[in-house]
Design a protein around this nucleic acid. Sequence first.
DNA 1: ATTAGAATGTGATCTACATCACCTATCCAC
DNA 2: GTGGATAGGTGATGTAGATCACATTCTAAT
Lengths: 191, 191
Amino acid sequence: MNAREILREHIAKTASLTDEQFDYCFEHFEPQSFKKGQVLIAEGDRVDAEYFVISGCLKSFFVNDEIKMYILQFAMPTWWTSDYNALYTKSRASINVDCITDAEVLSLSNASREKLCRDIHQLEYFFRWRTNKGYVATQKRLLSLMNNDAKKRYEELLELYPQLYNLVPKHLIAAYLGVSRETLSRLYNAH
Amino acid sequence: MNAREILREHIAKTASLTDEQFDYCFEHFEPQSFKKGQVLIAEGDRVDAEYFVISGCLKSFFVNDEIKMYILQFAMPTWWTSDYNALYTKSRASINVDCITDAEVLSLSNASREKLCRDIHQLEYFFRWRTNKGYVATQKRLLSLMNNDAKKRYEELLELYPQLYNLVPKHLIAAYLGVSRETLSRLYNAH
DNA sequence: ATTAGAATGTGATCTACATCACCTATCCAC
DNA sequence: GTGGATAGGTGATGTAGATCACATTCTAAT
């Protein structure tokens, strides 16, 4: 399945567009390819676009004191990622986005998204739903972080995203769970 | 300022509605009053509405093992609250919402919101933005929880919402920060 | 093939915070 | 006013997980 079809199917799950509407919509996306390790957004950048992942895996993360990294989100195919704070407030990036593996994305600029939302009501609906899902998921994660210990959170993560285990280095999983890589290592080696 | 004006001004910050549009919109909200301690949403309930706070203070919270409480959000005037997961997926509530003080709210049913979004494009825009703000705020809180110790989080909270300090009992602030009430007590008594 | 740098495992130690226990002050409801 | 929640404070002790230190393996570039 090509990028166009992946996007089409993804949107169709939430909003119904006519062929003409989707054509018009798709014109606003720009396909981009990145190599493993390439940076899409660096802290301090002006942020102008969000990214819809076609293949590969990205991460969005925050680095504290130039030392510790906390992963906000792994972005797998059909997931969206960006610095949404910077994007919506037109401020500079406070988080980073880069590639864990080689990746293909569809880039959508802020201006294009707003234009599409204005022109096609169904797309505004789509983006409202998408954001709502992200909001709910983040709230769940917040609760899990307060309520569960590292082991429980690790098990939850693997249950939710089994692919991650083999795809993503363990120290990144630790950075997502909010524990040190040492602790994570001890956890799944059942100490 | 009455409820109508408060809502009008709140929406106007994000979306521009004509007088007719706002009239139509406002018809879908139902004013409700609650006493301190009253429950708007209890775990297990069917959730059919979200609430826009006019006066007073609500909390949305999760109770683990019938013992420990974690507060997702304090809802002050002009804030929205509900169990958005249950509301959007039409599942039963996994969190609770009740009143910390006497409160007046405007209740908006899920059906009414969807109708309003369909009928008035600008409102769909409004709700998209509102959800986006919530998403970004929750991400920030997630980062703070992973990155900062309890003392730092406590200071951040007071800086962001100074009103809370006098309005809300300390043990609820602890439940928001994700620390025990004892630890919170020791923190601000500078041990 | 060689080598430098990532990624990972594991012990020893330290620490922020939870938990338990108990005490005091305040606020209502009868 | 009195008694029972509710809120808050503080000491003693326990523990999950951080941090430090170092060894091992894997990976990718030369």
